[in-house]
Design a binder for these strands. Structure first.
Length: 429
RNA sequence: GGAGAGAUGGCCGAGUGGUCGAAGGCGCUUGCCUGCUAAGCAAGUGUAGGAUUUUCCUACCGUGGGUUCAAAUCCCACUCUCUCCGCCA
């Protein structure tokens, strides 16, 4: 991977203030940019020097060939001496250059994506902006139960047995709950493939370190990831990882874009940074099911695509008749690779509020640069594609939302109408 | 796990130390021609960096090292793909 591909260092060079300004909005210090520029200048200096040294070496090589052809041994010996000197000098400079380039690469890997200009500026999640609301939270004529009470009481969820097997933050689903989880996966996949035109994919759940780097999950989030002690493979934290770099190193045709992929996979996360958060129930798990949407588009169309992708994810909740709202993340709350993000939050009685159930982001060319995914434009030139991803939806949280919003006084849970065909016609569980 | 073969430009494929950044073909672009389409003819056609920027220089032939004045080509390690054998859901 070339250094320039990461986060085009030429762009930083040309408009350093733009980078400092935009990255400053997401709490990246300007010093980091200055340091990169400083190293970049050093690297270019060495490169220029190397360039002329190599040019000389190449001309020497040609002369050697010429002398040898002319059987001029004296000439050969003389020029070989200079050649050897030069070879040593070149090696020294090359070592210097590769050290600096490695430093630059490490620094660039640590720089997040630029936020879109229109993203609201803010420090953290308290400054996110509500965009729209759909549906009304239900008024209960009894005290609704939280899923962590309701589930075990009904014998549908078991947290204690799960912890015997795997420790904290795991859940076992039984009977109708297990079937509903499966029904939700099928319903979501069917909706996105048949109505929204996505191509269904079943990707690997274990990926290489390089794949994690290409998607921007590493080196930043190593401690958030599960990996295998042998073979250095990583359990995917989301299907975004395999899907958004499936086309690594490829040159796509403009007329084939956009690519729309949907995949159901379990997701594996250590949740290292969230001690004490959402400890009850199955809101925050080390393993959870998710149906993920990923798009590849041209740069011109990516922000429109983000709108449609978000709408497509929202539709799942509309069909399930679950109240939700859409918020836009402010600059301080944006994920590492995202340039703009909408979160969809579903109403949960146990929280007496809205809880994230989907996160839809335009990643622009950030992953495409790392994974070198380009497309050939109509004028025959090459450019990086833009990638987008969004949950469509987090399945476990959707199940929780149904349990809590559809519960009856007697503890039974009504099955949303669209799910009934997937559950043998059951109306309640 | 064992044995063998291989990895070259958008694709196929030649190339075993010195005009090889790489033959040839396909594809693509442009022009000509054919009153459409196809075919035919001609030219062009990798990516990136740098400079004194209508030109010149440099790097890149799976990845990383090494040998050499000089590496796609020789040596070492690794990764991946294919074939056969073994094992296995």
């Amino acid at each position: 991977m070339e250094v320039v591909d990461l986060l085009d260092i030429r762009l930083i060079r040309d408009e350093p203030n733009k980078f400092k300004e935009l990255l400053g909005r997401r709490n990246v210090s300007a010093d980091k940019i200055d340091k990169i520029l400083e190293f970049d200048e050093k690297a270019r200096e060495i490169k220029t020097k190397l360039n002329s040294m190599r040019a000389e070496r190449n001309s020497i090589s040609k002369e050697v060939a010429k002398y040898k052809a002319a059987k001029n041994e004296g000439g050969v010996a003389k020029i070989l001496k200079r050649g050897k000197e030069l070879a040593n000098e070149i090696k020294i400079e090359e070592t210097k250059l590769s050290e600096i380039q490695k430093d630059i690469k490490d620094m660039l890997l640590d720089i997040p994506n630029l936020p879109y200009e229109k993203v609201p500026i803010g420090k953290d999640e308290t400054e996110n902006v509500e965009i729209r609301k759909w549906g009304e939270p239900r008024k209960f004529d009894f005290e609704p139960k939280a899923h962590w009470d309701l589930g075990p009481q009904r014998g549908l969820l078991d947290f204690e047995k799960a912890s015997k097997l795997s420790g904290s933050r795991f859940t076992i689903l039984y009977k109708d709950a297990a079937q509903m989880e499966r029904a939700l996966v099928s319903f979501m996949l069917d909706l996105h493939t048949s109505k929204h035109g996505y191509t269904e994919v079943m990707p690997p759940h274990l990926v290489t370190r390089q794949t994690m780097i290409n998607t921007g999950k590493l080196p930043k989030f190593e401690e958030e990831s599960y990996s295998t002690t042998i073979d250095d493979l990583f359990l995917i934290p989301t299907a975004e990882v395999p899907l958004s770099v499936m086309h690594t190193g490829e040159i796509l045709k403009e007329k084939d874009l956009p690519f729309k992929y949907v995949a159901y996979t379990p997701c594996y996360r250590r949740e290292a940074g969230s001690y004490g958060k959402d400890v009850r129930g199955m809101i925050r798990q080390h393993q959870f099911d998710k149906v993920e949407l990923v798009m590849y588009t041209t740069p011109e169309k990516s922000y429109d695509a983000l709108e449609s992708l978000t709408n497509e994810a929202e539709e799942v909740l509309q069909y399930l008749e679950l109240p939700y709202r859409v918020i836009e993340l402010c600059t301080g709350d944006l994920g590492f690779v995202a340039s703009r993000t909408y979160d969809i939050e579903v109403w949960l009685p146990s929280y007496n509020g809205y809880k994230e159930i989907s996160s839809c982001s335009n990643v622009t060319d950030y992953q495409a640069r790392r994974a070198n995914i380009r497309y050939r434009k109509s004028d025959n030139t090459l450019d990086f594609v833009h990638t987008l991803n969004g949950s469509g939806l987090a399945v476990g949280r959707t199940l929780v939302a149904i349990f809590e919003n559809y519960q009856k006084k007697n503890g039974k849970i009504e099955v949303p109408k669209v799910l009934r065909p997937y559950m043998g016609g059951k109306e309640e569980i």
